[in-house]
Write a protein that binds this DNA or RNA. Structure first.
Lengths: 333, 333
DNA sequence: TCTCTAGATGAAAACCTTTTCAGAAGCTAT
DNA sequence: ATAGCTTCTGAAAAGGTTTTCATCTAGAGA
């Protein structure tokens, strides 16, 4: 591998000058600059990022923390992030976290030894010690899809409660009053969406029945199926179900069809997220759309600006979600 | 940040000794070792990876090349890879490539400046120059889901042609003779699966009609839907369709139901891959299962062993795919 | 007692950059 | 002629680690 010293020797200048040419740092006579550039090109020299990081004390890398086996919503989110991070000139280092304390501790160790320039969380951690560490170190950070008031980190998310209400109101407006709710455990958005469900009910004078809500361990289709099966077994007179995520909704539709119930003729279903696949289910899933792409962009912008200006800028960016009408809801008459 | 020098000073030894303790390299008196370890723990010291990479000339990082907006099959694959790579003590650096020459060139530049220890491709590149570069540099590499005979790189994949035949034969055994085929462009697996389709037909004395095959630009549900719509418009007397990937199949089912055709009563559908979501479509998708998890593990093992032993081991690991029966195929009588 | 060897440790070089500091050269203004 | 500036360049240090080489000690064997 050719180094900056080789180029310097070949060009008859010092390594300092080569470095200056490469980084456009300061005065270099234009003939010298051109000469150096020619040799760089000829030798196909590229800067050694490791050495560069070492002296600069920056890695040009931003960490993205995401659950191991991230769902399809998160996949779209982070594809968007990676795209914009690269535009800003940063590499992305992913950290796939499992739901365990050991995994979080291992992450903390890596965090300490990696010299990241910034970090984005798409995954809400229980343990505050990691947030504390980041705060103490003053590492630029952004939270995506949730918030941590205590730490005052900038955050990017939709109005979870209002978005859930939107979904439930869509059902109410179509004559539904017996509306089930499926949600997962963990994560603030789960609680917030539940609040939204209950608030929409209350706002329309529908009394809340705990028998209509089922809580499953995760937010994936398998859990959605289990949740819906439970709901069916309870034999409540449901005409519609709101699932806290699209994946949950897809699992619910599966359970319904397995049980000989038709969507939307017998039971209407609405989800929340609008992941790609929701347009291709049968029937098409009516859902509430999070502006995933824009949210990924905003998160990337937030950390990059923090790094560039040396201090935190805006606090929170709220996005609004909108209903996407497809075929999984029937209007009652 | 505490450095190895700080620890050395605090422990009253030289940095060399601390390094030896940390890396379990050579003789260190056990009291000294314990003392150093205590101080390391007390100060919460962790090795600086950048400095370490610099001197070792290794990054402990393996690159994984994957298409930008990877599909659900690839997502499962790389989650599995990342898991095993971490077990081997390596970090994973993802490279999301777009379908353009510019993107491949940018990747090559990054490849040169990143000092990766190894690389796994989940994405088949058109341009041979990148493979050439890797070969010349002797960089440990593994190909996953495809092969490049010319370069002799170790590869991990299923028997594509045989797997496709398996799917088609499943249909033939259930009385289908008019079997459509939907596939995408690019990638060897597309061609190989097409060969498998035609070979199965031939093996059962069914003549091949080009009118039964449709080629769409990509392998996602949107493309599958378009492909199926085209097939329907041609008004061929199809009773079944084989889609080259599950995502394509999911799109095809959508097009069918949009056109008032029922699956499997009017048209049977089978896919290939067995991605997670295929168990949750309505009807459940009958498909051919690739052992995704095992393939990810094997790819990781392959590069790691190459690195450890200093030279390439096995060439190719072939996995066998198996039929997963669900509800999207009807037996004709 | 002397020599050898194994065990234990430290000094210093190396990895590849960037940047500070100092100095040289050439020009302008006094 | 001198001082002062601007432009340009190189030497050297710094960043945090690993490893080679040299040295030292203690114990074993002759």
């Amino acid at each position: 591998m050719t180094s900056i010293k080789d180029i310097a020797r070949l060009a008859g200048v010092s390594p300092s000058t080569v470095s200056r040419v490469l980084n456009e740092r300061a005065y270099v006579r234009s003939e010298v600059r051109q000469h150096v550039l020619d040799i760089v090109k000829e030798k196909g020299y590229v800067q050694n990022h490791v050495a560069r990081s070492m002296v600069l004390q920056r890695s040009f890398t931003i960490g993205v923390v995401i659950p191991y086996l991230f769902n399809m919503f998160q996949r779209q989110l982070f594809a968007s992030m990676e795209f914009f991070l690269e535009q800003h000139g940063y590499k992305t280092q992913f950290f796939f976290l499992r739901w365990s304390d050991a995994s979080e501790q291992a992450f903390l160790r890596r965090l300490k030894s990696e010299t990241l320039d910034g970090i984005i969380f798409i995954h809400e951690l229980d343990n505050p010690s990691i947030y504390q560490y980041i705060q103490e170190r003053g590492l630029p950070v952004a939270l995506c899809t949730f918030e941590k008031q205590e730490f005052g980190f900038p955050a990017v998310h939709i109005e979870e409660e209002a978005s859930a209400s939107l979904a439930v109101e869509y059902l109410i407006q179509r004559g539904h009053r017996n509306i089930g709710f499926i949600t997962g455990e963990h994560f603030s958005f789960g609680r917030q969406r539940e609040d939204g469900y209950r608030r929409a009910l209350a706002a329309h004078g529908i009394s809340y029945s705990p028998e209509f809500t089922v809580r499953v361990p995760s937010y994936d289709p398998g859990a959605g199926r289990t949740g819906m099966l439970t709901l069916i077994k309870r034999k409540q007179p449901l005409t519609a179900v709101f699932a806290a995520t699209d994946e949950l909704a897809i699992g619910a539709m599966k359970a319904l069809s397995e049980s000989g119930l038709r969507v939307p003729e017998d039971v209407s279903v609405v989800g929340l997220d609008d992941i790609d696949i929701s347009a291709f289910t049968t029937p098409g899933l009516t859902t509430v759309r999070q502006p995933i792409f824009e949210m990924g962009k905003k998160s990337a912008d937030l950390v990059c600006e923090w790094i560039a200006r040396g201090r935190m800028q805006e606090k929170t960016e709220l996005f609004t979600a909108t209903i996407v009408e497809r075929d999984s809801v029937r209007t009652l008459n």
